[in-house]
Amino acid sequence: MTLIERTLEAAGPPSPSAAGGQRWSTRLRSRPGSLMVAPALVFVAVVFAYPVLRMFVLSVTNMPAGQASSWYSNYEWYLTSGSQMNILRRTFVISAWITVSCFVLGFPYAYLMTRVGTRARLLMTGAVMLPFWSNLVVRTYAWVILLSDVGPLQAFLRSMGIHAPTLLGNVAGMTIGATQVLLPFFVLPVYAGLQGIDRRLLDAAVSLGASPGRAFRKVYLPLAVPGIMAGSTLVFVLSLGFYFTPALLGSPKQSMISQQIVQQTNALLAFGRGGAMALVLLASTLLILGAAALVTRRHTRALGIGGGR
């Protein structure tokens, strides 16, 4: 979790606390208010750490009946199963697509948020948060209706003379649905990052002979990288674990890893295998978060964020 925090911190406007070098234990001692996080730590320990531990124990003890095996055979089964590895790979690819579409939609949106007045910004924040305020089931079924072959979207496209490919029950449907759900997780950190960029830097670049487009590319974009990294990482990691949206808008033939885990635990009662899969997913997630944090930190260091401007 601290990795996410760190990524988020790095995205925000420069703050001295972003110095990630300190160990959390030192931080805890050096900050007087740190006792206040104790309840949260206990909560995380009970509802996160303990279940993960249980899952791990199950994954190395609970074997499918009738298989003589060693402690790692659940992992062996998973990592050597071609179809499962396909699904894992597909999960990553779809997550990447979702991240890309969040970027394509979310970056201009976040940029616009920094350029409009207070009232419009409030409206835009509300609009992007809208998915949070409506029920996930209702929303996802709404997409089923909208995207179906006989739905309004396809009807509209047909009336325009466009014969679009099927948008439901495949990767396209999953990406559309997940993008809507995850967009706020991209827009908000990116907005926070862009907000901290001094617009006078663009004036400066232009006065030095850069065209507005080049000023944007050479000055604004590099400074926006930490925020974009934070938003992308968040969206990517959340997509990896997505279950409900792909289950409804995708198809069993193109399932993602979460659907497979549900299959193992709910249908086949293979808790050990389910646990092993979940832990492989967790490990890859942590790896990605770590890599993202590393890249972001190196970049922010180069930017000199943390010092005064």
Partner: peptide, 15 residues
């Protein structure tokens, strides 16, 4: 315009 400008907050590129 080829005019040099020095800003109050320096406006140096931090990256």
């Amino acid at each position: 315009r080829n005019i040099g400008v020095v800003f109050q907050n320096y406006a140096l590129f931090p990256h």
